[in-house]
Structures are given as structure tokens and as C-alpha cells.
Amino acid sequence: MLFSIYRYNPETDKKPRMQDYELNIEEGSDIMLLDALIALKEQEPTLSFRRSCREGVCGSDGLNINGKNGLACITPVSSLGKKVVVRPLPGLPVIRDLVVDMQQFYRQYEKIRPYLINNDEPPARERLQSPEDREKLDGLYECILCACCTTSCPSFWWNPDKFIGPSGLLQAYRFIIDSRDTETSSRLADLDDAYSLFRCRGIMNCVDVCPKGLNPTQAIGHIRSMMLQQGL
């Protein structure tokens, strides 16, 4: 099987290049793309990429695979055709080969205050939540911050310093809708500029690529509806 992989070492290379590698995969067997990359690293020890849990939970190995963002560890090579083109996630600075600098992504995540804020007196034991209120967090809390969605979003490519991006906004809604959080209004007010939330143009690349099957566009729509109810 043929792999074309993006190679770039800023310390020695003037510009990035695509390099081809052959890997023999036994007839009738199937492996994940991450396993293929690990096997290729045996041939070419300088090949760099991130991985950790190797089962789609940690979100370390988000890559651009045949033009579409996804997690290498849960993408079977059998689904990828004869030639596999692997690039780093688009829109972020490349540190080396397939490793990108996630700082811009994390900075946007930090902006939405990704933790519960409750200004009421703490109860003796714990803040309880009804099963109905807990259900509202389904489809939101599962985000693993792999950045597949945000780096596939053209609005994030053009304004990575100002637009929160689909992942951050999905997380923002996770705390806005949480019945135990008392900062709903200020969270909504924080997003009321021309960029943070409203730069979403409904392109929906985020929904297309999310390895966990989440829907950031829908969460963004819910945030807008809540804002509108307060703003009218």
C-alpha cells in the first residue's frame, strides 16, 4: 500500500515536501492508519506524529487523511483506497511533519471558561441535577478536543485569533446549558461580538469530520437562539 506523507523539519528544510512510502499489509487483514504510521516509523525513524491512547479517546492523532480530518487510530486503511495522502491538520503552524502547534486552538478553548461556575452557596454534599437536565449535556460533553472540526473550518483558518471555532463553541454551549452553572448571561454576553460566535457561516465541515459524531453547528444555533431571546 502506498502512503504519501507530509514531511517538514523547520530546522533543516526550506519548505515542506510530500514523501512516498510503501508498506506491505497482509492480504485479507486490516489495520488502523495509526498502526501503519507506527510501522512506517520503523522504516523511517525521523517521521514524527502524535499518538497516545490509540483508541479514539485521547484525541492526539488528528490528521488530514486523504483531504479529510480524522483520527488515525480509528481510521481503517481499508477505507482509504490504494494511495493514502496524510497531512497535518490544516490551519495550524507545523512544528514537525504531522505535529502541529495547538496553541491557537487551546487559547480559544480557554476563552469560553471551560469549567462550571456557580456563585450560589455550596450545598452540604453536592449540586444535584435532574436526569432531564443531565440529558441536555449529551452530544456536548463527549468532545475530546482533537481539533479535527476547528481545523477544518474556513472561518477558523481566516480568523484563528478571533473566532472561537466549532470545538470551543460546542464546549461553550455545554456550560451555558448546564443547570448547575450560574454564569449563563455573562457567558452569552462574552460571545456577542462580530467574530467569536457569529463568524460561523454554517459551512458544517465540523459536523462532517467529527470523529465522535457530534454536531457543533447545532450547538452554535442553540447559543444564537438563547442570545436572541435575551436580546429581543
Partner: peptide, 14 residues
């Protein structure tokens, strides 16, 4: 934003 029509993202969006 100074040259946008509305003074907020919500304003422009509506």
C-alpha cells in the same frame, strides 16, 4: 468592530 453595520454580532445577524 467600527465599520460593521450593527454594534454586535447578534445585531448584524438579526
Amino acid at each position: 468592530s467600527t465599520t460593521s453595520l450593527g454594534r454586535s454580532g447578534l445585531h448584524d445577524w438579526v
